[in-house]
Design a protein around this nucleic acid. Sequence first.
RNA 1: GCGCAGAUGGCGGAGCGGCCAAUCGCACUUGACUGUAAAUCAAGCGCCCGAACGGGCUACGCAGGUUCAAAUCCUGCUCUGCGCA
Length: 394
Amino acid sequence: MGAITFSIEKKLTGALGRAGILTTPHGTVRTPAFVPVGTLATVKSITPEEIKALGAQIVLANTYHLYLQPGEAIMARAGGVGKFMHYDGPTMTDSGGFQVFSLGFARGHGVTKVLKKTEKRLSRDEQQGGHAKLVSVDEEGVTFMSHIDGSTHRFTPERSIEMQENIGADIIFAFDECTSPLLSREKMEASLKRTHRWAKRSFDAHTRKDQALFGIVQGGRYPDLRKQSAEYIASIDFDGFGIGGSFDKDDMTTIVGLVNEILPEGKPRHMLGIGEIEDLFEGVKRGIDLFDCALPTRIARNGTLLTANGKKDILKAEYKERFEPIEKNCGCYTCMNYTKAYLHHLFKANELLGYRLATIHNLYFIVHLVDAMRASIIDGSFFDLKKEFLAKYR
RNA sequence: GCGCAGAUGGCGGAGCGGCCAAUCGCACUUGACUGUAAAUCAAGCGCCCGAACGGGCUACGCAGGUUCAAAUCCUGCUCUGCGCA
């Protein structure tokens, strides 16, 4: 008897998309669903009551960050991350694998995991971590320098799982290496093989049966490696799957399709760290059940608001006297009660409430959008919704 | 009326003979942000030409002057603040 169950309610015709129901020890998640990111056991600037009120069903925290601060032992003694942060809904933790990338290669090269068209020409064969400041990878695991105090720390698949068991989320992830999109095929392949070995080690190290463990598919931008990865990861009896970056912006969606063709239909699929609106539609269409992403909350704190007409920068002077909600028909707490002019003022004055209100709006927007996708799968209008929404959004 | 201090780009405020179209902050504009080292970061911000290197023009209250060279020194004027009458 696993920690979670997953059932499919309705499938798209002519595509891999589906609406499902995921049950966890801390509640049910109707999928597809957007998962707010709460890296340090907090969705930055808002309370668990607000997380729920805006419609989110599950939260993702981060192992690397919680290990450094306040330490996984604190989480274990608190009774798990959910209890610690006063959130009684479903939770998941990332393994720390992403930090191999974000604290390593990404910093050395100034790239993000989604390669834009203009960056393609940068492609070159450089060893991942070659310019890294805080990370080095070997067969056994990863050595990190703390970004907080520079102290050295060692993560292995076994350690990651142990830490995640201590942190105690409902769903945990295998320890993987998130590679750079600039990585050459040879390096990518070597990294992938290692990630596969780490996946097996993660699986073998997992002991808590009240926690589900998801394996992670890698393979970068290479379709054949992605297929290979999906096949291998699917061959292990994981409770579900994560699909990890990096991608090429142009073929991210086709790669997701390839992978989901292979992954067993009856288990949930989580697309790690993807949250652009277009990508969400494409992911849902191709059978993704869960998305987490720091984007909506981060850009909220930087003053960018998501609207049906695209992103809006509330810092711009044009909002100074717009005494109207961000979105007329938005049901979020922010739009129900505050105006653009007020948000603009809060941001100009660096007032804390601004970050909160913007975060609430952006999360509400994206959570409800994915919910709408779910509803549209059930009533058969997904492709209409996609077309109409994106036409307006762009 | 006398004395002292000061007038610099949208604002505040540096600079006090050449490296000054002028540091910096704010404001403004544009961009970025995808498993969060991000309440962050990057670029621009007198006018004109140029893809770019760059070039031209107008500018540091106003008018003169000294000097090869002035936002910077001198003289007068105007205005502002403070003190004394």
